[in-house]
Design a protein around this nucleic acid. Structure first.
Lengths: 116, 116
DNA sequence: AATAAAACAGTAATGATTCTTAAAAGAGTA
DNA sequence: TACTCTTTTAAGAATCATTACTGTTTTATT
């Protein structure tokens, strides 16, 4: 079954694998990937494409932003009230574009409080 | 030498390689990567981390946004006036964050005019 | 229980990018 | 020109995240 206790921060597939392995000693990395992909496809979790090419996974699917720390290469939630809702931003982009704009990602980078 | 006639759209390293190869038949993909990285590090070109994991390169370093087409997997410029400058957005994020926020990327996705 | 469907472990394959190495090109100098 | 020192290069090997494949085991359904 595809129940992966998503309580942690923003783990990579590898980190999820290590974590889950403590409960299910025999699980394989391939299985973790398959389940993560399935959950992400169903919108149960969010897949974050980060600039280092390693995807992160987030159990929190609500609208919020992320900070990629150039120091520790970890991803943190960012408490941020945007002056404009993303949905409106997408709508504006859709209007001004020749094609169709369905969504967008806003990703911040910098240093986390530990690496700052 | 590191002069790669960047006149095209938003080519991947592979596409740059194919293009440059018509002029310099003996160039290697590694050389292309090295030069692209060098140019990107010096701010001469922009490296775009796209959600499919394949980087694109953009000779236009001015502030503008990109649309990733889920159909043809190509990247297009987006004519879009944001209601708030990105620099201000970064500043706002920096203030509300415990760490330091240095920059951000906003990437849109959807369908281009051909794939729409 | 019998059979069909889904999930699994293990591993091989893929594909973008980087690293390594040894050769070539270039610059400067006498 | 010949010689040394530095930089750039091609080619291919290595890396690393992710996916695909294969045969087996578990689960669901009748």
């Amino acid at each position: 079954m595809a129940f992966l206790g998503e309580t942690k921060s923003h783990p990579t597939a590898e980190e999820v694998y290590k974590e889950v392995r403590r409960q299910l000693a025999g699980i394989s990395l391939g299985t973790v990937y398959r389940n993560l992909n399935q959950l992400a496809d169903n919108g149960m979790i969010r897949r974050l494409h980060m600039q280092d090419g390693i995807d992160r996974f987030d159990a929190d699917v609500s609208e919020h932003y992320h900070l990629y720390c150039n120091g520790c290469k970890r991803v943190y939630d960012l408490e941020l009230k945007l002056p404009m809702q993303v949905s409106k931003l997408v709508k504006a982009a859709d209007k001004s574009s020749e094609g169709t704009v369905d969504g967008c990602v806003i990703t911040f980078w910098g240093k986390c409080v530990n690496c700052g």
